[in-house]
Amino acid sequence: MALSKLSNLYRQVIMDHAKHPHNNQPLPQADHEIELRNPTCGDVLTVQLKIQDDKIIDVAYTGTGCTISQASASMMTDQIKGKTTAEVEKMVLGFSDMVLGKEVPDMERLLGEAAILQSVAQFPARIKCATLAWKAAYQAIEESENDD
């Protein structure tokens, strides 16, 4: 069956995250927020961050989208919580390289569970779905740095 290749993309852990996303609610105490749109499908994702002393104290997201964008957002929030802004920026760039099919040193350590989204590299049309939440987090951090 031709759908066997599809299983590479839609792993169980990805499906679980999409069905039961983590940190998928508004974050009232957030001090930075970025709304991003996937221009190809119109999906909208809002990522909210609480940043203190260059550290991600809390993070959450709202919005709907496809399995890949939801799972990726859910994993992103899990992975960046408690990290420093510098670490997160490095993670976002690593994640972006990973889904573009580039070699990322120490990928599993850098991205944790989100490294499973490496399979997106085989589905170029879905890269934007996967990177949306990460881009939003990156932009929110940039915004926080501009405030300083």
Partner: peptide, 14 residues
């Protein structure tokens, strides 16, 4: 099923 997911699946079937 989000249409993006559906379209990826259909693509696997050509």
């Amino acid at each position: 099923i989000h249409p993006h997911d559906l379209a990826s699946a259909l693509d696997m079937d050509g």
